[in-house]
Design a protein around this nucleic acid. Structure first.
Lengths: 351, 351
DNA sequence: TTGAAAGCGCTAACAG
DNA sequence: CTGTTAGCGCTTTCAA
């Protein structure tokens, strides 16, 4: 069923039906009525590919996320989806499995649909992918990077504008805040447990900032990498290393920060099983504030993230850019360190 | 940059470039080389909307899920996404928020892209949505219903074919298995805690089957509905009702089954907090087997679901149907009741 | 208020 | 092996 078919039914030409569909007011009432009936009878659904081709517009938004199953990105996807639907845009989505090569490949595929805007995760891309994004933006397609706002150092008093609009937060800042939280509770022997997903560079960067801040404050920091596989099990598996670390000449770790709440929960559960006192013997700090974190016993301290908001704000930013193209912005969203029982301050003497 | 541009660069016409892109073997090596260079230089990305329009094909798959953030559907989406990407198809996704009206509205929007196939969640649709799906299938677009395989009663010895291919499992069967599991552990006073998401009819159907099976075995069953809002909190909130139920003339509930693991975890954590013995005083059975279920203390019995497989099998089914259209099939995927400590058999005397 | 002509970027079918 | 012609279904621009 095409526009022509229903035009024939209504005794007009295709263009009139097309007009009716877009600006009903510009069609005579009598004609409109006949068109409406024909539309009803046939159950016509306009072909958006043809429409987009003719008008050069496009109603698709392409989004690239590392993984749709990961609750962090799933909520962002939901936020994006809901906000775009409300604006009449459709979401074309692809997962990259944290791989820059797959991101490039999928970006190329999605760009073939001439999306109205592009959303990518993070600020690291392959050279070719970056070139594609630049070209897209130069061609008037807004590009938004999510989950990673990275302020460059200020030049001449103000920070330079980013290449693409960024919606998220500064992972360095979070890493530092995590360190400061543990330092404030009196800890001086810290550990950071990095993600087993090696390509999750944001987790790695948080760890670097964590370590730098801790060392700057005179604390010792050890970095472990969780084994790959189920992250809760990985967190359990990491606990022994945390407990025995530096047992010889170096004082033992008294607090550990984790790349995510799954790992931290694993460690917490394993500590419980081994009757290791948390936070007395070992304080634990997660990242992500997953719903269960606050429910465990002891409740897990964590960093609450604007997971859904990143999606909705990204949608808003690209809608705004579509209407009135402007320079790339940095949209910093709030996060908060939720201090709970697992890091309750004990005023430990520094070792 | 269009096909014409790079054709001009390579000194050929557009159709030759088009051929090179689709069947490189059918152009002369020398020509191919020039085209390749031109492609490289310009960074050309073929316009798929135009290609699809001309060829009548389309490389998009439309998927409708209740919610992308819900871990159950998020994993299915990931499975779908990965399997489709591997086959060179893109995923156009929309969320319905468990609403049939929104499903219909979004279905109409997605159908405008003339997708190569359509994936919808569940077997209930508005009349108009069902008509759209029928029309799509009649027009050669495979339609797959996921998460709900509902065998009709057999006529003349064999069950009738479903309207659309279904990929999932039978929720009635799961509901019965949940009841049987608790009955086998000696329980005779059961409860089913339904989802606070009223439109989640699959959870409701499991509850009905659960209750029917339990009553058929001579047990008493009470059905509660979890309050809306955070499901873990809802599970916590429901516990008192379970503990006090029937305390007067009717014997107390000794085992409860839940619409999902979030609710069950909430109840488990609340039981722990109140030092209510699980499973001795109250056995708890979840649904979904979320990663944390097995990690809690006591570990939560639950029903493990083919979450990712539903996505991958749906992709396979629609790819197969694209290549060789056949009758709708019912693809039943396996699930398993994981008996853990929270329902460990206590051989309770029936009341 | 409606229509005719042209074309969006690409591909099918045929011809050369 | 390559090109010509004629669209896919819709919208733009202009004219009536």
């Amino acid at each position: 069923v095409t526009l022509r078919d229903i035009a024939a039914e209504a005794g007009v030409t295709a263009i009139t039906v097309s007009r009716y569909l877009r600006e009903p007011a510009r069609v005579a009432p009598a004609t409109a009525e006949r068109i409406r009936e024909a539309l009803q009878r046939t159950g016509y659904v306009p072909n958006k590919a043809a429409g987009g081709l003719a008008s050069g517009s496009g109603q698709l938004v392409a989004a690239l996320l590392p993984n749709l199953a990961n609750s962090i990105f799933a909520e962002t996807a939901q936020g994006l989806s809901a906000a775009l639907q409300a604006a009449g845009l459709e979401l074309l989505i692809a997962s990259t499995d944290y791989s820059l090569e797959r991101e490039e490949e999928q970006l190329r595929a999605l760009l073939g649909w001439r999306p109205a805007a592009v959303v990518v995760t993070g600020r690291r891309h392959s050279a070719a992918a970056a070139a594609l994004l630049d070209a897209a933006q130069a061609g008037g397609t807004p590009v938004v990077e999510i989950w990673d706002c990275h302020p460059e150092p200020a030049h001449l008093g103000r920070p330079p504008a980013p290449r693409f609009t960024q919606v998220g937060f500064d992972h360095d800042e979070v890493g530092r805040a995590m360190a400061e939280h543990l330092l404030a509770a009196g800890h001086r022997r810290l550990a950071y447990v990095d993600s087993g997903v090696a390509a999750d560079y944001r987790a790695h960067e948080r760890g670097l900032a964590f370590a730098a801040a801790a060392r700057a404050a005179g604390a010792r920091v050890q970095t472990l990498v969780a084994p790959p596989g189920d992250p809760i099990e990985a967190g359990r598996a990491v606990l022994p290393a945390l407990l025995t670390s530096g047992s010889r000449r170096q004082a033992r770790v008294t607090a550990a920060a984790f790349a995510n709440d799954h790992l931290a929960c694993g460690a917490l559960l394993e500590a419980h099983r081994r009757t290791v006192a948390v936070p007395e013997r070992l304080a634990l700090l997660g990242f992500g504030d997953f719903p269960l974190a606050r429910q465990l016993e002891p409740s897990l301290s964590s960093v609450a993230l604007p997971r859904v908001e990143i999606g909705t704000h990204a949608a808003q930013a690209l809608l705004a850019a579509r209407q009135a193209p402007g320079p790339a912005r940095r949209i910093m969203l709030g996060w908060s360190l939720c201090a709970r029982a697992s890091t309750a301050g004990s005023g430990l003497p520094s070792a």
